[in-house]
Write a protein that binds this DNA or RNA. Structure first.
Length: 484
RNA sequence: GGCCCGUUGGUCAAGCGGCUAAGACACCGCCCUUUCACGGCGGAAACAUGAGUUCGAUUCUCGUACGGGUCACCA
């Protein structure tokens, strides 16, 4: 039974942000690299923060990126249930066991006393900590209160002296003075375990061998060791990963209006590209390659490459990687994915979307870039005649007028309206005139697109919008040049 | 504030006592080219800081600065 078992244990409190997803990814990869099991456990012990539908979001995003779990609430498994609230009974039993072992104790302090205590401590500049009021109640006193039905919690009995050393695979050994550790609550008055307690118990019961979690839990980790020791359990390997930041000062979070995984997908990012990018945020592969599929990451991933410092989410880099993925798509697949975006601005039905898509593939980093790129196909935008002035092409308004008038004559004579024909005829004109390609082609492209930049050049555009539109746009542009 | 953690170009980052300190994105220039993009070539750009240890520190130790985390019957 040396199988690696990891778990992703989110709380159903809403959306799934990028940081969460990355934690899930690393957790998954660590298991899969060794051919181990990846489990999903829902930590819903806080009924107040529970958000309806949050569990579905977790399922959905994990599935779309391909982080398939081997055991979980929906598919079951040998160590279920996998929803923490359904494990309630278990925790009390273990908390009581700890009391019996002298590593925990009942506490009957009510909230009023605790808030007052905290206020006093803060006022006097001491860092707030439970004053261990109930730590030394006699067995009789405890029994009596229990019999009376006084509400209670169970707290961890931290040693008064000495130090505790916790080992993290990434950060190494972390030693803290026990005197700085609070007698934290293990079992709440409502019978639910606190996060810290539930984690230790569940991870043990589920046979978890590697725990991957956010860095924010690093400070509470030493207390875990005390718990494991008291129970006499093996301590899993801990890997605390640093957060993904929005900027130098703040974490990436929904509260700041930052994108969640689903937002990014809606913004035109490919889920494979998102996964690839976040894998790279805080982790570096061995070689110089940085494009990896999930499958490739399974063998490539290594804890060694994880970074200890926080990393800033760079939308530009994500975009670039997304662009790489888009270019790697087969033309058919790209066309299929791009179609809806093209149709946002191209409503006319007389032109070939496939041909448009071909032009777009190398020019698209994010699908949402598309509509704006092809908006001229349905309708010529108003444009500035200054567009005809181009130093490199050696064109200005006068030469453009000349080029357009001559081109128009040529184009009007074409009956077989296809790229090759248009290309050959216009090149014939260029040769006859003995001018640079751009002398003719630049003005033509501007005249029929009205834009400085377009996907494709004059021939492609002319073919796509058709002969009729090409000619009428040319004529209109010629008129504009004449009248001004 | 106490405790814990971190600090290599603008960003992601390689480096694990001796290097002209990789690479990628972004940026700039050139080439290709009927625009843009793609592609190719090249450029600018970094070890927070002070003291040690050492023949030699980006790398090890300590201090300082800056940044982050944590101090809940939230996770």
């Amino acid at each position: 039974m040396n199988e690696v078992r990891t778990r992703f244990a989110p709380s159903p409190t809403g959306y799934m942000h990028i940081g969460n997803l990355r934690t899930a990814l690393y957790t998954y990869l660590i298991a899969k690299k060794q051919g181990g099991k990846f489990l999903l456990r829902i930590e819903d012990t806080d009924q107040e923060r529970y958000v309806e539908g949050a569990v579905d979001i977790i399922y959905r995003t994990l599935k779309t990126v391909g982080l398939n779990w081997d055991e979980g609430p929906d598919i079951g498994g040998p160590v279920g249930p996998y929803i923490q609230s359904e494990r309630m009974g278990i925790f009390k039993q273990y908390a009581v066991e700890l009391v019996e072992k002298g590593a925990a104790y009942y506490c009957f302090c009510d909230k009023e006393r605790l808030t007052e205590l905290k206020a006093v401590q803060e006022a006097s500049g001491v860092s707030p900590m439970y004053d261990r009021h109930c730590r030394n109640l006699s067995k009789e006193e405890v029994e009596a209160k229990l019999a009376e039905g006084v509400p209670y919690v169970i707290r961890q009995k931290i040693p008064l002296e000495g130090t505790t050393t916790f080992h993290d695979e990434l950060f190494g050994d972390i030693t803290v003075e026990n005197s700085t550790l609070d007698d934290q609550i293990l079992l709440k008055a409502d019978g639910m375990p606190t996060y810290n307690f539930a984690n230790v118990v569940d991870d043990h019961l589920m046979g978890i061998t590697h725990v991957v979690r956010g860095n924010e839990y690093l400070a509470s980790a030493p207390k875990y060791n005390l718990l494991y020791e008291a129970f006499g359990w093996d301590i899993p390997k801990y890997i605390h990963v640093s957060p993904i930041m929005k900027d130098k000062h703040s974490k990436l979070s929904k509260r700041n209006g930052d994108a969640s995984f689903e937002d990014l997908v809606a913004k035109g990012y490919l889920s494979e590209a998102i996964v690839n990018y976040i894998a790279l945020l805080g982790w570096a592969p061995k070689g110089e390659r940085e494009i990896f599929s999930l499958e490739e990451l399974k063998s490539e991933f290594d804890i060694e490459g994880l970074s200890k410092s926080p990393s800033i989410f760079d939308p530009l880099k994500l975009k670039a990687i997304n662009g790489e993925y888009i270019r790697a798509l087969t033309p058919e697949k790209f066309c299929e994915l791009a179609r809806p975006y093209i149709m946002q601005t191209v409503k006319r039905t007389d032109c070939d979307l496939d041909k448009i898509a071909v032009l777009l593939q190398n020019r698209t980093e994010v699908f949402t870039d598309i509509p704006e790129q092809v908006d001229f196909i349905d309708e010529m935008p108003d444009y500035d005649l200054a567009l005809y002035e181009n130093k490199k092409m050696k064109t200005n308004r006068e030469t453009a007028l000349d080029a357009l008038e001559r081109s128009l004559l040529v184009l009007e004579g074409i009956t077989d309206w296809h790229f090759d024909v248009i290309h050959d005829e216009l090149f014939k004109l260029i040769a006859d005139m003995g001018v640079k390609n751009g002398y003719i082609l630049w003005p033509v492209r501007v005249a029929i697109s009205g834009k400085q930049f377009t996907p494709g050049g004059a021939f492609e555009i002319a073919e796509i919008i058709g002969k009729e539109d090409t000619l009428s746009r040319m004529k209109r542009s010629i008129e504009m040049l004449k009248t001004r």
